[in-house]
């Protein structure tokens, strides 16, 4: 054999192209996570209010984004927005929009369950000493629930990063799409192209997600120890 299969990664501009694809995935994930978390915090706080109509609407929103698989969500927005609403967005924007709405839905549930886990008497005590609602959130509810929300939020982040692998399905030039092109272009010279390229992408995703998982677990363990001690 004239060359080993791993060289496919270093042939021409292949490595830069792969990392460029990864950059697009990362950009979409980053924007969606930031916007989704902000929107999710607001929705989560709204879901703790007593208004029944608001509760039903937000619950339906959450359940819709939970029940429908992300692949299907991507297709729904990708095909239906231009066809039925004449809104032509490019695939990257569609992906960012879908991911943002999805993160917001999941985040709203994380925030809600964090807030309702704070014992009722804490809120009553806060009201008794005359705290206003913003003060109640700032000094009572958030400090006691944020430790619960952080691990779940980090896990959600890793899920978003993993889900960026689906971008290929709506023809975003993400890392996997670039990988496929490289494999096809080098088919003649590298019989093992798929093995090395997909192996490399597998490792790339692992490198991105593993530290986040470890971090989330670390925080969870610390929180558990604090509660038991």
């Amino acid at each position: 054999m004239a060359h080993s299969g791993i060289n496919i990664l270093f042939e021409g501009r292949n490595l830069t192209r792969l990392l460029g694809g990864l950059w697009i995935s990362a950009k979409i994930a980053f924007i969606a996570i930031v916007l989704g978390i902000l929107l999710g915090i607001i929705l989560g706080m709204l879901r703790t209010l007593k208004n029944p109509l608001l509760r039903v609407i937000l619950r339906l929103y959450l359940e819709f984004f939970r029940i429908v698989p992300t692949v299907v969500l991507l297709f729904l927005f990708y095909y239906i927005l231009p066809q039925n609403f004449h809104i032509n967005l490019n695939a990257e924007v569609v992906a960012t929009l879908v991911f943002t709405l999805w993160v917001a839905a999941e985040m709203s549930d994380i925030v809600r369950s964090g807030l309702i886990s704070v014992p009722r008497h804490q809120v009553d005590a806060g009201k008794a000493i005359g705290l206003t609602t913003p003060q109640l959130y700032r000094y009572v509810l958030l400090p006691q629930s944020i430790q619960l929300m952080i691990p779940a939020t980090i896990n959600l982040t890793t899920r978003v990063i993993k889900t960026t692998s689906l971008l290929l399905l709506i023809s975003v030039m993400d890392v996997i799409n670039v990988g496929q092109q490289i494999i096809e272009a080098n088919n003649q010279h590298y019989q093992n192209g798929a093995f090395w390229i997909y192996g490399f992408i597998f490792i790339l995703y692992f490198i991105l997600c593993y530290p986040l998982s470890v971090w989330a677990r670390h925080i969870e363990r610390k929180e558990k120890l604090r509660n038991n001690g």
Binding site: K162, I183, Y198, C209
Partner: peptide, 23 residues
């Protein structure tokens, strides 16, 4: 567990379906 949880299913499938035949 770490390998499986920290990588997407799509790339796992690609690896099983496209890369395994090459070996």
């Amino acid at each position: 567990i770490e390998l499986s949880r920290n990588t997407p299913l799509l790339i796992q499938l690609f690896f099983i379906y496209y890369a395994f035949p090459e070996i």
